[in-house]
Write a protein that binds this DNA or RNA. Sequence first.
DNA 1: GTCTATACGCCGATAGAC
DNA 2: GTCTATCGGCGTATAGAC
Lengths: 196, 196
Amino acid sequence: MPYTPQHKEHTRQRILHAAAKLFCSQGFDRVTLTQIMKQANMTHGAFYAHFSAKSSLYEAAMQFATSHAFWARDDKQTEGKETHIKALVSRYLSWSKSDKEHPSPLEFLVTDAAHKEEKVRQAYQACFDSLVNRLAGILKKRGSQDANALAEETVVSLVGTVAIARSFAQPLQSDFLKRAQKRIVNRLNSGLSTVS
Amino acid sequence: MPYTPQHKEHTRQRILHAAAKLFCSQGFDRVTLTQIMKQANMTHGAFYAHFSAKSSLYEAAMQFATSHAFWARDDKQTEGKETHIKALVSRYLSWSKSDKEHPSPLEFLVTDAAHKEEKVRQAYQACFDSLVNRLAGILKKRGSQDANALAEETVVSLVGTVAIARSFAQPLQSDFLKRAQKRIVNRLNSGLSTVS
DNA sequence: GTCTATACGCCGATAGAC
DNA sequence: GTCTATCGGCGTATAGAC
């Protein structure tokens, strides 16, 4: 028997991985099942042995992407370091060179935030909350009062920046990103310095 | 002869109007020609008497929308008033009740900022610049040094806020919008108060 | 479980009558 | 200039062989 349960689970993960990558950078509509399955080294016919529909895959893929996003990994190494937050911001804004294997949903997915299907919108919002909470947690440890507000403000800027940056051609794009990064880090610093 | 040049120009404007409205709220891909032409009180067959392709229409429609956006209209009445900027911010963030006849491209179009076709991206960026410059102009009059940076920062926040807000269901959406508005206005105030 | 082949619908674009 | 009808392509989903 060539097809073990482990094998099925493994290919399911391959599909999720490919889907997350593609959905996150192009959005729900612009990605086709054939594209996804091709990237998972299969043909589109095999898809329905794993998921019932494209939208079902989307839900699962967003959850996958959110839990695998770089900010969700507990970086024990950098935890506590002063540069931790700045590194997160910098990492977020350097998406063009980012770890393509673990794409972050928020980076590009503003596209789907307004999608017709509620499930799609909810998936986006869950991801947004995940990042805000993560950031707020770090800020609280640093002694920020209004950590939640500052975190929300920061994520809005990050998302807005990356979304808009995609319309720029080089080298204007990197200039724009640098300016934004500077502003965001400054804001974080002054938000923290009011206490420490 | 039932079809005068004026008549053609008039229907062309109707198409542009309908297209701007639809594109701005749903993005390039999710809007169909049939939809647009229906809203302009015609059938899809009539389209090609006015435009050569969907993407051509998009360009024209974005230009139309940008020049008709509420921030592009010189509000001589409010010019100089202290509440002018705040009104602009507030107006921008209340898109759900906004003037549906003159939709603002930036509000929803982050969707298309990453579109494959360069023309589409350029159209988006032109609109972005239009708003940044408009804001920077006002800020300069108020004596802000770094008017350009502050304007860019503000527009990024506005766009990010509205884009993200679309994933929220009521009443969380209005809470989110209110928080963002407060933050943005505060930032503008402190940016101005450093001088005046 | 994965393949190839195909059904079905939607959309952009064209053809031709009026 | 606007209509109806239709072509052609693509994308989701299904059918059936292996």
